[in-house]
Design a protein around this nucleic acid. Structure first.
Lengths: 219, 219
DNA sequence: CCGTAGCTGACAGCAACCTGAAAGCCTCCG
DNA sequence: CGGAGGCTTTCAGGTTGCTGTCAGCTACGG
């Protein structure tokens, strides 16, 4: 998933960026509201992590702006422990969640996953595709009783496909989910990861739709 | 909205019930898991507020059960401040949110509101032509329960016909939709694709209007 | 019954895709 | 600090199957 991190504190920012990247997400890090607007103008994000106190304004304003857009991403607010009123105001302004600083990075992962699942509108937290069982929340896969290990990138691709099982996901969409802004990838990386995924979870799980993209088998 | 409150603590339970009722919601209060199952068996809820520590079992189990049902309601977990691991487990098991006890009642309102908004919006336009189901957003077609695979061109033709179901679309219009400007196509390509489409989705779905064009059956 | 419009099977060509191999990176460990 | 191991990215050659074309056929209207 592609995440927009809006945070001016370098320590928190880099920690979050690192941790989310390890989970296979692509993170764009904006240190100011105006930078965030620039990012949002050109890219589309699956999630926004929003600090409320920023050098050039209040995060709530950003929230209000973004809520007016149709393609709004879910927003998780990052807030200090003692600012309950901000938190409530944020939730009322349309935020989906909040994390209290300093927060546990494991909890960050859990919340990111929860949001992703929520917006993927998946009725069940686990997928069972024939003899294959996928538990996105726990990042775990069973194939015929055997645990399957995926690398971060492989997982990111699979995650992208699981957002809408049965629907077609374009190569560009997957690419956008894999790579942060600015890192130009001039290659067939997506094809390579699909290839590896197929070897690990079974070739017929992922169907190629020529000229369009890929699709996760829904049975 | 109708809310199922699962909570054994009388003080918290009555406070929540009162407050939510003041917000205009109907609240059913179960003090045990078995009572909750009884409630869920007869009524359908828009939201579940779930305490994890109950006299007759763990709330996580309830969460897992309910997640398997198609008509599952969103779940907000009620948890004590020091039980972070429970909280994470809950979110991973499919909860949508959590509240830390003791929680601010204003925050409860905000969260209920957020969940309602979240679940309110999910449009999905589909075509159903008799036993044929087309989901444009996912680029997916079902024919008698069988998935139908279309190539890029075939889909383009169908898409063109779906723009105005029932109306006549000329061969030239379809051609324009298929081929970018300037690329001269001196052939009967459109006829070929209509032919292939008919084989895949059923001959009688697309009617020929001799000398004019084609029309998608609207029943 | 004839002429025209539309249908469809076959096929060569080619873009899209797959995949093995290898080089670059990063992290961990001694 | 250096090396090992695993992950990522790139590249190139092989393969697949979509595409556009044509030719022969069918269906329709007059």
């Amino acid at each position: 998933m592609r995440i927009l991190l809006i945070e001016d504190d370098k320590a928190i920012g880099s920690a979050v960026r690192e941790h989310a990247a390890a989970d296979g997400h692509a993170v764009d890090w904006a240190r100011t509201l105006s930078a965030a607007r620039d990012y949002a103008a050109v890219a589309s994000y699956g999630l926004v992590l929003l600090d409320l106190h920023l050098p050039d304004g209040n995060g709530i304003d950003y929230l209000r702006e973004t809520r007016k857009r149709l393609d709004m991403a879910p927003v998780i607010i990052l807030t200090a422990r003692d600012q309950i009123s901000d938190r409530i105001e944020g939730l009322n302004a349309g935020a989906d969640d909040y994390l209290v600083k300093p927060f546990d990075l494991g909890e960050l992962s859990a919340r990111i996953h929860a949001v992703a699942r929520r917006y993927g509108l998946r009725p069940e937290p686990t997928f069972s595709l024939g003899t294959l069982i996928i538990v996105p929340a726990e990042r775990r896969i069973d194939r015929n009783g055997q645990a399957v290990d995926l690398t971060a990138r492989e997982w990111a691709v699979l995650d992208c496909l699981m957002q809408r099982p049965g629907a077609i996901v374009s190569k560009t969409q997957i690419e956008d989910a894999l790579y942060s802004f600015g890192s130009e990838v001039a290659s067939n990386a997506v094809e390579v990861y699909v290839s590896r995924l197929r070897r690990k979870i079974g070739a017929d799980r992922i169907a190629t739709v020529r000229g369009v993209g890929y699709r996760l088998a829904d049975t």
